[in-house]
Nucleic acid binder design. Structure first.
Lengths: 223, 223
DNA sequence: CTGGATCCATGATGATACTG
DNA sequence: CAGTATCATCATGGATCCAG
């Protein structure tokens, strides 16, 4: 196993941090683990063009630095990768990158660009949080292609995660990724099942297109 | 000029952001520009092991994405690189990395590891800000090897920047980098000139070793 | 001196295929 | 499911050189 040992050799906190998480793909692995533990193939799915060799290398490095832990159940082949508390502490970094990315680096999807529901929902949560005059407590349960996700506003911030809700959801949305995409982009609500009390559903419908709104507003002004 | 055009092709705000700033060295260039505009050679000094080719390439990319602007005064060869407002918006990303780096990725300097006063002062400001029960308004003026820096607490946060203070400093410190290092590490105050009102100097002396304290506390517990 | 450019070496990553 | 293996390519490192 060739291990990436490139350093910066600066006596600097930023450089030290980037030696641990600054390699190509590394922060994207952390992004995907922040929403919940994943298996090797789950990560491959979400990371798209990464090669298994590179993913293996990144996971080993992250284990070495104590950012990721691998849960290997004896007798089973399945390995679940999860963030340690040290890794969880990278959430502010990812959030800051997401804020900047949404504000300055957004582009509408290219033709045939792979799109994962989890990343789409992250962008939605980030957009709502960014504009948020939406200081409400609300929990949305998404069931997309058989996987469960939650977007949640706690009255101060909006966040997302993978998995089923711990408490009853205000709104439950069932759809396939492409139908969800059309809903979020404000194109149509075909093939999207939305369940919940009428007022809650109404607020959901209002907020779910925040991402499209934010992006449209920027497209007119930025590069 | 070979331009790095690697993308991730995810429909994801984090991936979009990292396509702009995720390349090796890029965030370190931004780190150094966040404390003030710099010339090519100023950046070379601070970045240490970067090659001029790579720095040129990074600066061009950052200009392309609108993160950096190059001020070329007609008739003069000097080029000053500075962050645009888009680039300034990356401050939360650098701050988050610094926070994590100080908390989890710190190491004492290696033998002969290059050390730049600007990075050392960043770490000091970050450390004071992190532990800060120090909610005071205070301005320290550092004169290190002929260059000026400011560390400032505004009552809520502590930050640093290059340049001279706009208002009168509470404490003025004059030293060479290695003497400053020894002061910060709590080893000695030899060859460090500290001027200011007695109470202010006392507080300075108390706070300046925060970095050493924070680090020592972690060394005993972490990797 | 500043602000690079050029050349070559090497190592990290990408592409594709295969395996316990 | 969780990787390995092999080969190709491209980004980066290291050194040197140069023009205004």
């Amino acid at each position: 196993m060739t291990r990436n040992v490139r350093t910066y050799d600066h006596f600097c906190v930023i450089a030290r941090a980037l030696e641990d998480v600054g390699d190509r793909w590394t922060l994207l692995v952390i992004r995907d683990l922040l929403s919940g533990a994943k298996r090797f193939t789950d990560l491959m799915d979400r990371l798209g063009a990464i090669t298994p060799k590179t993913l293996t290398q990144r996971l080993r490095e992250l284990e070495d630095t104590g950012i990721v832990a691998a849960d290997r159940t004896p007798g089973r082949r399945e390995v679940w990768y999860r963030l340690t508390p040290v890794g969880e502490d990278l959430r502010p970094v990812i959030d800051a990158l997401g804020w900047w990315g949404l504000k300055h680096a957004w582009r509408w999807p290219q033709e045939n660009e792979p799109m994962h529901a989890e990343h789409l929902l992250r962008a939605v949560a980030q957009a709502i949080d960014m504009v948020a005059d939406a200081h409400v407590t609300e929990l949305w349960h998404f069931r997309i292609d058989g996987a469960d996700y939650v977007i949640e506003g706690d009255g101060k911030h909006w966040s997302h995660r993978a998995g089923t809700p711990q408490v009853a959801a205000d709104v439950t949305i069932t759809a396939r990724t492409d139908a969800l995409k059309r809903l979020i982009f404000g194109e149509s609500d075909l093939d999207v099942e939305i369940e919940g009390a009428s007022a809650k559903v109404q607020r959901f419908r209002k907020l779910i297109t925040t991402l499209a709104t934010v992006v449209s507003a920027q497209e007119t002004s930025s590069r």
